[in-house]
Nucleic acid binder design. Sequence first.
DNA 1: GTTAGCACTCGATTGATTCGAGTGCTAACG
DNA 2: CGTTAGCACTCGAATCAATCGAGTGCTAAC
Lengths: 353, 353
Amino acid sequence: MSKEGRKYDILYTIVREYIKTAEPVGSRTIEKKGGLGISSATIRNEMSDLEDLGFLIQPHASAGRIPSEKAYRMYVDQFIDSFSEQNGLALKIREQYSHYFAELNEAVRKAAEILTKITSYTALVSMPEISSLGVREVRFVLIEGDRILFIIITNESTVKNAEMRLSFSPTAKQLEKAANFLNYYIKGSTDPITMANFGARIGELKSAEQKIIAETVPAINTILNADIKTRVYADGLTEILNYPEFQDVSKAKLFIEAMHQQELLACLLASAMESESGTPVDIKIGKEVEIDGLTECSVLTATYKLNGKPLGTIGLIGPTRMDYSKCTIAIKTMSTELSRHINISMGGRIEDG
Amino acid sequence: MSKEGRKYDILYTIVREYIKTAEPVGSRTIEKKGGLGISSATIRNEMSDLEDLGFLIQPHASAGRIPSEKAYRMYVDQFIDSFSEQNGLALKIREQYSHYFAELNEAVRKAAEILTKITSYTALVSMPEISSLGVREVRFVLIEGDRILFIIITNESTVKNAEMRLSFSPTAKQLEKAANFLNYYIKGSTDPITMANFGARIGELKSAEQKIIAETVPAINTILNADIKTRVYADGLTEILNYPEFQDVSKAKLFIEAMHQQELLACLLASAMESESGTPVDIKIGKEVEIDGLTECSVLTATYKLNGKPLGTIGLIGPTRMDYSKCTIAIKTMSTELSRHINISMGGRIEDG
DNA sequence: GTTAGCACTCGATTGATTCGAGTGCTAACG
DNA sequence: CGTTAGCACTCGAATCAATCGAGTGCTAAC
């Protein structure tokens, strides 16, 4: 063991111990629990060095030390690939997630529920972005006068509907014709719909029908895009209140308020989806989270997929001191399971169509 | 002023003072603030009586007194009709609620948002029960094979949809015929749909169409009923964390968890809707709430209506020490406004149809 | 019946003291 | 020269006594 190696063994021992106890760790604790065979005095010297290097923080002079965010980052980078299964965690997840779901959203929610139950941290999930699913069909329903309802059905049978007004009062027949025309061109497409898609063929329609299409297409695209931002679901909101770092009500309040800001959470999960590079589990620590109420939190995320294509993100959020090892395994297993479920129940369907 | 009257003047002064300060109220405070022109010694005697009567509680021997739930109850019963407008509260609500909403749900949510903002308490709203709105139309959409999607559109253009499987694979034409048949009979009805509605006329349909109807009607009724239980929305969840009685994290946790139990909240609001007797604002104090995490809370509710018929409930929830006067006015005004909005934007529509 | 006066209660605040976990430094050791 | 035993020192936490003061209840006088 190199001398430098020993220094970091001490650091990792402190990280693990602090994750467990939430109490500052002293040199004697490491002497006893670290199993490193060196005296507390030597450890003290190393700890002093680690503090100078920015890995440890001393809350006050006569206390032990706690890891800095830099320390968690190093710990995670070092060990993320070697975090291993404990207590049949993966098995437990598979057991609880054994039955099937007709609705995609339901499957995703259940995943959040299980994650929270298993880890005791707050779980976040982003629902599949409708725009990435492929539109199966658009329907128009005449409500009355110029008010219509349009319904978008995806390949996975997720349904989204919204009301709008046209510039005139169409007949049901006109709406049907327009819908049929649209459906012919957009079937299964995941691209935004543009008038250019239709080419000259649009000339075959009557003017009222053309008008319907011209007016609804932007609204449909708006819905498809708006959807990306708003579909986040959180489970186990109050778990955070069990941890000592959130006993202060004002901190708890900030956390819970942040958890109600759909847009922020959506950004958080979306950015994780983009940065999907190499490692299956993305970890943001403390200030890396870049959200006001969550500066003392960490977020672990992974994407779930359909036929290899990312659909959405699942995540866990807890104090920076959270159990990265357990959570990494849990998130990894859950995202795999969720993807598997979706592929079984939806994947075949797409190949049929 | 009768002698008994004086006793209760003292009680009400204590209630008002405690609502304002959250501190136990002593006899000297009342002497100064009550404006009753009697000495603290006399007040002490009366307070002692009020304690014996169960209206006051002494947290410990050398503290002032705080009102019991019985005291709040008496105070509210006594004054609910004379609670009056302060600081242009009603005006503020009307101002903030001045623009119109296409969607009923949106109007209701906005009402909750304003209630929370104006009162600083958590607002609860129950969405209109779809089953009470009247079904305008049912649509069936063929997804693939035996899987269909049915869409229920109410008179107010609220849309509800769900997926189901039939015992066979219908054609789009069959679905359309079945839907048309159904729509003819159920248009505008608020009653549950039964096969008996259709009488002999069902014989005119082909057997596949009859089958579709027989299989979808129960599913539609299930949706209509299930709906009642799940449509509650809360705004301002964390407001409660501002009040001293919820500085204890474990209490805050219970509260927030209770606020996530849709069924409980639905019951709470539903029971208020039923007990709608005389007074427009229903008030439940402390244990009267009968929900585990909310024993130290009070709930104020009022119903909103369409054409005089109750559609749903809006409510405010806060500590038992909450500002009943302000909240009563706020709830009353908001429910009137909400009803007015709904009647203007939806009411006419129904008369058209 | 009301009230002034007073002794009494008891939680909250203050301050002094102690305790102990933990550090940093120094000197000695292999 | 790295390691370690030893020790003085620091500083928050816990303990305890003293004091404070808001508020009560009782009594006696008005």
